[in-house]
Design a protein around this nucleic acid. Structure first.
Length: 832
RNA sequence: GCGAACGUGGCGGAAUUGGUAGACGCGCUGGUCUCAGGUGCCAGUGGGUAACACUGUGGGGGUUCGAGUCCCCCCGUUCGCACCA
């Protein structure tokens, strides 16, 4: 007497929804809108694992509930389908990346459909579709026309294994973050986007958004705005955030790449400087900054001296790689007393350390970076850091020796890649070197067919192989392609008018739907994707093409789902059916040897993947959906336990059995019009469940809402009869979580139309109150008993009842009562 | 190294934000239905005890009538950032 037949019910309703186009986006514009968006996936060859649907399930619950609450909901799914894995597979197999991509998309889509997610599939899009990337190219032209795209010969991160350059953000520890392939510096001509021009607005406009705290910080840190001053030490201009410490400036340091190093170095120091620069040149900037913190300082004296503009002392000029060429002016003045890096350097090379801010211990031993009254600083003496900064900047400006300056860590965005499977740039170069845009009416510039997806022998990108395609209007087409970020920078806009081939999006529709009300995805995109998309959006806003300053009003990161992985001594991963626990230790079944366990990200290579299809087949889509949200708070990372799905399935079976006799598959009379409505416990559980689910849709706390629905079903199971009206209210709040079962129940209750657009039930606060209050009784802060009182009992009566309680009495005997505390509706504390 | 978050039963997690710790689920134990059960139902389940007392939210201190919640110190885990002047 198990439960419902999930296989047939899931299939029945998924077909019904398709046939009736239940989730087609509404076209009337009188109702309020709600745009809920998932970060769309890259359709990899591995298919989905149970981690993917966690966020999708959450947004589906929100979308379904919002529909019932009377909103027009835009709920869509698409594919971030340009990218490296398909191209690499193409290189190996010779299959066209588009074929691989289409196949992967079909797999993903089938898996998502099995979960009963309420997407409007008529709006599906893929970034690698020419009908889509036509508009990506069009937006690039907007950027270009606004002077935000330019070409530059710059040192770039080149990855020989991939044959392409990478963005700074994609390189860590001198390796490509995705594959670990080594990356080296090369001078190449690249397309850049002037994101730095938007740095300030990208910081400031964060203020009006509803985003996780950590993500604001990640964005701000990445942009790294700092306010300071440019100061001239003779011909060297330095940037500093501590101009107040200029009196303690005892030397100047140039980045090894700084243009003045050659000019300033004295003949005696020439060899030493040249050797040092060569040594540094071998290491990428990324390496230099990553090893950073504790690495011993290195550097060489140039032999030159400059004058400190405030002390008018001659101080030495050094070159050292702890100063970065690409930040500020590539030169700093060093105040070793009040900067840890300068201090370490000064100690190593015996440079003088002069204290100018009081407050630390011995500055000869340790730098003091805090606030304090200035000393040894002439007209700054006695001032705090901030006051000293203001005063010195004014002083410098008066004398033309410096000025206030704002700097950012953020660099311009390196926007070209030497790959095949990406958007071609809509550009061509004329013989005279001029670069022109392909006219709008000739977009898209479609990817040409080529016979091999590798760079050419002379290092040209793969597109250079398309000999027939290259010539264009007397010039040559650009052979770089855009990075994968490009397509995801604006897909939320294309969803608004996905099939319109006249415009990228309809302006009126954009005004209605934007901004995205709720955007859900992993926090691995907390910096880059969000920064890039916000940047494009602001450019489009400036161009008058969109109506909002920011694209994503509310952002939520779902936590990752982990699963234990097992590795034997040789480092080989084992499936969970190949291991077992003996005496509390995990061993390989076959060899009996111990294995190492680790809670890991799910991935094919770690053999710890759980496939949602298997869960749907065994427990049904609804149980799977419920478990995804019941596991814990949505934002937390948790370990997958398949037994938990069995638990949510049992809950659904219990709900089903309230209505259906599973022996005969007929309705039972427990749920009826005539059931008595005086079951206060059941009614309270119902209203509590409605309340919590309603709140959950707002604050994304689904786990406790599901718990309260379970309480209702447990209560209803105990009851001999359940009023039909109550049961229907319950089924409505259950339906966003378990839509297949809810539709089936709804139909069996005699309804002809889908539950999808039924009005959301309201809860009644009065029904949540209890008939009797159970008041805890403490004596001296320790719980000693409980008394039941009526909700309208007077405080004095309650305290009297508390003191009279059999369990409480012994603790009061022979003691003087010092104080009595009553907390309304909760407890009494008697202090003796 | 810096910053942030967190630390609650065998496990995932609740706790009205200073007011009866452990909701709900998993697991486990016992009973019951069943030819049988990897099903359903009933009961139990922080430790401890025959039962009470007692004890219990990483450890130590503090504020308070009352602390998982607030403050200080320490330990641990996770995640960011990492020479950006």
């Amino acid at each position: 007497m198990a439960g419902f037949d999930h296989a047939s019910i899931d299939a029945k309703w998924q077909e019904t929804w398709d046939r009736e186009q239940t989730f087609l986006t509404p076209t009337d514009r009188t109702r309020p809108k709600y745009y809920v968006l998932d970060m769309f996936p890259y359709p990899s060859g591995d298919g989905l694992h149970v981690g993917h649907p966690k966020g999708y399930t959450a947004t589906d619950v929100v979308a379904r509930a919002k529909r019932m609450m009377g909103f027009n909901v835009l709920r869509v799914m698409g594919w971030d389908s340009f990218g490296l894995p398909a191209e690499r597979r193409a290189e190996r197999t010779g299959e066209h990346p588009s074929v691989i991509t289409e196949r992967n998309i079909a797999t993903f889509k089938k898996q998502l459909k099995k979960l009963g997610l309420s997407y409007d599939w008529s709006r599906e899009l893929a970034t690698s579709d020419p009908r889509y990337y036509k508009w990506t190219q069009w937006i690039f032209e907007v950027l270009h026309k606004r002077g935000l795209a330019y070409q530059a010969e710059i040192p770039v991160n080149f990855c020989p294994a991939l044959g392409t350059v990478l963005a700074n953000e994609e390189v860590h520890d001198g390796k490509y973050i995705e594959t670990g392939d080594p990356v080296e510096k090369r001078l190449m001509k690249q397309w850049m986007l002037r994101i730095t021009e938007y740095a300030d607005r990208l910081v400031e406009d964060l203020d009006g958004l509803d985003w996780p705290q950590g993500t604001y910080k990640a964005q701000r840190d990445w942009i790294g705005k700092s306010i300071g001053a440019n100061v001239k030490f003779d011909q060297i201009e330095v940037f500093t955030t501590r101009p107040d410490t200029l009196f303690g400036g005892t030397y100047v340091v140039l980045a090894p790449e700084h243009a003045l190093v050659d000019a300033l170095t004295t003949p005696e120091q020439r060899d030493a400087v040249a050797a040092y620069r060569e040594q540094v040149g071998k290491r990428s900037e990324r390496d230099r900054t990553t090893e950073a913190a504790d690495a011993p300082k290195t550097g060489v004296f140039t032999g030159a001296y400059v004058v400190n503009p405030v002390t008018e002392q001659r101080i030495p000029v050094w070159t050292a790689d702890y100063v970065l060429a690409t930040y500020g002016t590539g030169a700093v003045f060093a105040c070793p007393a009040h900067d840890e890096r300068d201090h370490a350097f000064a100690k190593k090379f015996g440079l003088p350390i002069i204290e100018v801010v009081k407050g630390g211990a011995d500055v000869q031993a340790e730098a003091y970076t805090g606030d304090g009254p200035h000393v040894n600083s002439g007209f700054l003496d006695g001032l705090s850091n901030d006051a000293a900064k203001t005063k010195i900047i004014a002083w410098l400006e008066e004398r033309g020796r410096g000025s206030q300056s704002v700097r950012y860590k953020l660099r311009d965005w390196l926007f070209s890649r030497q790959r095949y499977w990406g958007e071609p740039f809509p550009m061509y170069e004329l013989p005279d070197g001029r670069v022109e845009l392909v006219p709008e009416n000739e977009l898209p510039v479609a990817l040409p067919q080529i016979d091999e997806y590798k760079p050419t022998r002379d290092g040209q990108p793969p597109l250079a192989r398309a000999k027939d395609w290259l010539p264009y209007k007397g010039g040559t087409r650009e052979t770089n392609t855009m990075p994968q970020w490009a397509g995801s920078c604006w897909y939320y806009l294309r969803f608004i008018s996905p099939t319109n081939d006249q415009v990228a999006w309809d302006r009126d529709e954009e005004k209605y739907w934007m901004p995205v009300d709720l955007y859900v995805g992993g926090n691995e995109h907390a910096t880059l994707h969000l920064l890039y998309a916000r940047f494009w959006h602001k450019v489009l806003f400036d161009a008058g093409l969109v109506s909002t300053k920011e694209p994503f009003q509310r952002l939520f990161h779902q936590g990752m789902i982990h699963k234990t992985s097992f590795r034997d001594g040789a480092g080989k991963y084992l499936h969970d059916h190949e291991v077992e626990q003996r005496d509390g230790k995990w061993v390989a079944k076959e060899t009996g040897l111990p294995v190492e366990t680790k809670l890991d990200k799910m991935s094919k290579s770690r053999y710890n993947v759980v496939n949602p299809d298997d869960m749907c087949n065994e427990y049904g889509a609804d149980a799977m959906r419920l478990y995804e949200l019941f596991m814990g708070p949505l934002e937390d990372g948790v370990e997958w336990e398949t037994s938990g799905v069995a638990g949510t399935r049992r809950f659904l079976d219990r709900a089903w059995r309230l209505l259906v006799d599973t022996e005969t598959d007929t309705l039972i009379s427990k749920v009826s019009e005539s059931a008595p409505t005086d079951n206060r416990d059941l009614e309270r559980a119902l209203h509590q469940a409605i309340k919590r689910v309603t709140q959950a849709v707002g604050d994304m706390r689904f786990n406790t809402a599901i718990a309260d629905m379970m309480v209702f079903v447990n209560e209803a199971t105990k009851a001999t009869a359940v009023p039909r009206a109550w049961f229907e209210m319950f089924v409505k709040v259950l339906s966003p979580f378990a839509p297949h079962l809810a539709e089936e129940i709804w139909q069996r209750l005699g309804h002809q139309t889908s539950i999808t657009y039924q009005p959301w039930p309201a809860f009644d606060e009065a029904k949540l109150a209890k008939d009797v209050m159970v008041i805890g009784v403490q004596v001296g802060g320790k719980l000693r008993g409980q008394v039941e009182v009526s909700p309208d009992a007077a405080e004095a009566d309650i305290i009297a009842a508390a003191k009279a309680d059999e369990k409480v009495k012994p603790f009061l005997e022979g003691k003087a009562i010092k104080r009595e505390v009553y907390v309304k509706g909760r407890l009494v504390n008697i202090v003796v």
